[in-house]
């Protein structure tokens, strides 16, 4: 503002100097009567002071009693209304914020719950699987055991058969070739040989 203010005084300055230097002299020369600078004609001072004061007082009364209170009222009312609106906006915003927080909390809770449920199910599932694996494993082991037993039995049976055959063969061979038919001795001999082999 100041910058503009100052720039605007430039042309005035020159004219003012002319006015102040040249005109008063002229005015004084003519004794403040007609023809001089009217501003320096002291005869007009009384009326100008009088009317200036009277009209200013009138203006002051009109403004302070009538005009300004009315404008002030309107402005106040508007100000109140705007303040109220702003407060309401603020309040609504706070409510919204609370709702958002509430919603977020609910969401987080739901998420945590879901996680829990899922991990629980996972645990259950893996436990069941392990159990089942165990069972199957046990059943298999049992089956293998019986099968092994059966095989062992079959083997033993087969070995007995082989021994008998061997004793028969040996006894027959001895009998035919040598003429000895001591079955007891042959059996023990075969048993010995088989024991050595085994």
């Amino acid at each position: 503002m100041t910058e503009h203010l100052k720039a605007f005084f430039r042309p005035h300055f020159a004219v003012l100097m002319v006015a102040l230097l040249a005109l008063p002299g002229q005015a004084f020369a003519e004794g403040g009567e007609e023809g001089g600078l009217p501003q320096l004609n002291t005869h007009t001072y009384g009326t100008q002071i009088f009317w200036g004061l009277v009209l200013f007082v009138v203006l002051y009364l009109l403004m302070s009693r009538v005009a300004l209170p009315r404008v002030g009222e309107v402005l106040e009312e508007r100000s109140k209304r705007i303040t109220g609106d702003l407060e309401r906006a603020q309040q609504l915003r706070a409510e919204t914020e609370a709702l958002v927080v509430y919603y977020e909390e609910g969401l987080a809770k739901a998420r945590a719950h879901a996680g829990q449920v899922i991990s629980g199910v996972n645990h259950e599932l893996s436990a069941a699987t392990n159990h089942r694996l165990d069972e199957v494993g046990k059943a298999l082991a049992k089956k293998i055991e019986t099968a092994e037993k059966r095989i062992a039995k079959a083997q033993a049976e087969a070995m007995g058969e082989v021994r008998n055959v061997a004793v028969d063969v040996a006894a027959t061979v001895l009998d035919k070739l040598v003429g000895i038919s001591d079955r007891e001795q042959v059996t023990s001999a075969v048993d010995r040989v088989m024991g050595e082999r085994a």
Binding site: M1, E3, L5, K6, A7, L16, L86
Partner: peptide, 30 residues
């Protein structure tokens, strides 16, 4: 936006116009 509106509504003790004492040659002279 609410804050801006509030600020506009309740002016912060007026915007001070910057006026440097040294500015303005002839205006200052006058």
């Amino acid at each position: 936006r609410i804050r801006a509106a509030s600020a506009k509504h309740i002016p912060e003790s007026a915007s001070k116009e910057a006026g440097s004492p040294s500015s303005g040659g002839i205006g200052m002279g006058f």
